[in-house]
Design a protein around this nucleic acid. Structure first.
Length: 269
DNA sequence: CACGTCACCTGCGTGC
DNA sequence: TGCACGCAGGTGACGT
């Protein structure tokens, strides 16, 4: 489900509710949700850990604990919720952490994930999981110079390259389509054919759509994440008018992923 | 190295 | 109403 803006939105909301809480116990309700370590070790290690910070790297949540990092990836259908008091698990709750505040109040961090693709890691070395990720698009490391050079260091189609988390980390199917449209670049363009001006436009567009996503608290789909108000330009708008020129938005498959673009604004040279 | 295919999962909308 | 089918925000393991 969530891409960088959705994860950032959730992380900002969770942080004040989690920092300072102590993890009393964990209920793992779907074994494969836990990527590392084994369920037995996980439960032993996480008990008594205090949550010291909540941050984000790409589409991963990082819960900084006393002695470990708890990393969470929501993949397609995951969500993180806080519930207060006593609770009974819902159908798709995969992991529940029982939390205790300094005042002795009970609450729960619930990882709900319909499709079971989401994963959780408990590790002393977060780099083992995050080490292969490309730069953060909203960091100072991501510049249009870097992007232009990086695009020319490979021969790939633009859209699949934007989705490659080792190239640039945090963009998913929505924001890839949205940034290519804003930059007036065709999703099937070859990465090493992009001019310096086009790379500048793409850099600007990526930053703009991600910031817009964060400002609007992410995008919403009625069946999963609610509350966000990011407005799609092309994504999920097949047959509807391009907001720039009015041409009908087209949908094609690129690398097995649904891809939306304006055939007038985004020419393949 | 680049790309295609499949696997992992459940649920929803569509059309017959 | 029932049922088959296609589709979904992600990633990783294969094979060519």
């Amino acid at each position: 489900m969530p891409e960088l803006p959705e994860v950032e939105t959730i992380a900002r909301k969770l942080k004040p509710q989690l920092v300072g809480k102590t993890i009393q116990d964990a209920q793992l309700r779907w074994q494969r949700t836990l990527a590392f370590p084994s369920p037995r070790k996980f439960r032993g290690l996480i008990k008594g850990q205090q949550i010291q910070n909540v941050t984000r790297r790409a589409k991963y949540f990082i819960l900084q604990l006393s002695d470990f990092s708890l990393l969470i990836h929501l993949r397609m259908s995951g969500d993180l919720l806080i519930k207060k008091g006593k609770i009974k698990p819902e159908k798709h709750d995969r992991l529940i952490l029982n939390l205790l505040s300094a005042e002795g109040d009970l609450s729960h961090l619930v990882f709900n994930d319909t499709r079971k693709f989401g994963r959780v890691w408990l590790t002393a070395n977060a780099e083992d999981v995050l080490g292969k990720l490309g730069p953060e698009p909203l960091s100072r490391a991501f510049t249009s110079r870097w992007l232009h050079t990086a695009l020319h260091s490979r021969h790939r189609l633009l859209k699949p390259l934007l989705l490659d988390q080792t190239f640039l980390a945090g963009i998913g199917n929505i924001y890839a389509d949205e940034s290519l449209h804003l930059a007036k670049l065709h999703p099937l363009a070859a990465s090493d054919s992009v001019t310096e001006q086009q790379a500048e436009a793409l850099h600007r567009s990526i930053c703009q759509v991600l910031k817009e996503g964060i400002r609007r608290n992410g995008a919403s789909f009625d069946w999963v994440y609610r509350g966000g108000e990011y407005h799609f330009r092309v994504y999920d708008r097949t047959g509807k008018p391009c907001p720039v020129c009015g041409t009908s938005i087209e949908r094609i498959l690129v690398g097995q992923r649904s891809t939306h673009f304006c055939p007038t604004c985004q020419r393949l040279s």
